[in-house]
Design a protein around this nucleic acid. Structure first.
Lengths: 247, 247
DNA sequence: CCCCTTGACGAACACCGTTCGCCACGAACA
DNA sequence: TGTTCGTGGCGAACGGTGTTCGTCAAGGGG
């Protein structure tokens, strides 16, 4: 008896500034948790624990885990600053916008994966879509093609963010393992080109002649460079421009 | 006693042609299950049930669920036929190869999602990579750029397959719901342009002027047409070609 | 002052991936 | 031929998940 009443009185006293538990608080805590433990490890129980409450309390503000993650996705996109006139012409601005979107999303682990299941319709996603469409129009892309082009770019952003996030993640895991065990040589070789080079290198030359012939260029060493990502983006924009004149 | 011996004698007699439970049998059953109930619904328990055994038996042939899905992914890729000389020049063949990869993958629900987490190194993935690289070289793409170009195309295949699979899935769910309830009007409007058009349509014109201006072209009606996917692919190839001359 | 709506939440349900340990079976060997 | 031993098959269980239900306390309206 006294125990329960004491606990009831103590709990609010121990946490007097406890969050009023709004929808925004839930989403913010979830995003922070995504950054700390990764996307798949963000469970309703952990989010609730971060707000020190029970899992059932979250469902007052959020219908699903999916809906929560969609909200987290849009909150992550809030960190993307739109390029301004000082950033150059339309093409420079577009490349900057896309690059920022990719790096920002990849900075929150696999959060971009929610954009695969459902088309994002949050305010920040729309803000970026609006900016993208404006820049494409400024580049002279045909009005009928702009939505398609924006969709293609969005597809590129999502997949690039996921790829980058995956690389960042197992790079982090690698350095962590390196810290634990002193396998410097193994860690070095894996960090440099991962075991993918070994896979391509050990391929029989008669079955895969072209892979074998291009093996020096297949190394994943230069893959993490910004030049690679920028090259891909410029390829897409060049392709869009070649479709500008004719419908 | 008699019960147990009877059961022991009956079980093999009831299932005399029971599969010897090989790795291939597990993977095949998993792929079939993917087609029937969808990717996320493929659980170890269900795969085991399809082979009428227990979940623990699968771990003799497969280390993880991840490894199983990776194997399923490669088995799915076995269904894409490589274009031959009769299919036209290098560009026509490349476009055909990419299109086939997308539609084949999308035909097995979200199976392409395994290509996001881990780089596919199965035999069929390598077979397709080999063909892609060969066609790119035939197109005059610089040898140093071919791996990058192949990676870009692969990224495009994966994301396009996931997008297409998602559309196929909730299109199927829609027709199923239509069959259950007779909401013909609602189903029609949703099937035609989904609720995405409504989202874009109800956007305030002052906050999102470009989206509003391009609204007629933003309709998702024509999005499922093959023309759309082909256009995106041709944009990428055009972009690659514009990088052909200079390094 | 009482009632009654509503947010908070403990407990539970159904299910998941994975592991442990036992059991029966087939082959190798005496 | 009899015995032992390694191994595939698998029942049972563990720790975890998303989600729901029914209860409970608090606060505003009558």
């Amino acid at each position: 008896m006294t125990d329960s009443t004491a606990r009831l009185r103590d709990t609010p006293r121990t946490r007097p500034a406890k969050a009023p538990l709004s929808r925004q608080a839930v989403v913010t805590a979830a995003l922070q948790l995504v950054d700390e433990v990764g996307c798949t490890a963000v469970t309703m129980r952990r989010v609730a624990q971060a707000l020190d409450t029970g899992p059932a309390s979250l469902y007052v503000y959020v219908a699903d885990r999916d809906e929560l993650m969609a909200e987290v996705y849009d909150l992550a996109l809030a960190g993307v600053h739109l390029p301004g006139p000082a950033d150059g012409d339309w093409r420079a601005r577009l490349e900057l916008l896309i690059s920022r979107a990719i790096t920002t999303l990849a900075g929150h682990d696999d959060i971009a994966s929610v954009a695969i299941t459902r088309v994002p319709t949050g305010p920040h996603a729309l803000r970026i879509l609006e900016a993208t469409l404006t820049l494409l129009r400024a580049g002279g892309i045909d009005d009928n093609l702009c939505p398609w082009a924006a969709d293609l770019l969005d597809q590129f952003v999502t997949s690039s963010a996921l790829e980058l996030a995956a690389r960042l993640r197992d790079q982090r895991a690698l350095t962590a393992a390196e810290g634990a065990a002193g396998a410097t040589e193994e860690a070095m070789s894996e960090a440099a080109g991962s075991e993918l080079d070994a896979v391509y290198g050990d391929l029989p030359a008669d079955t895969y002649p072209t892979i074998h012939a291009l093996r020096p260029a297949m190394t994943t060493a230069g893959r993490d460079s910004h030049a690679y990502a920028n090259w891909k983006l410029s390829v897409i924009i060049d392709g869009l421009l070649s479709h500008r004149g004719p419908s």
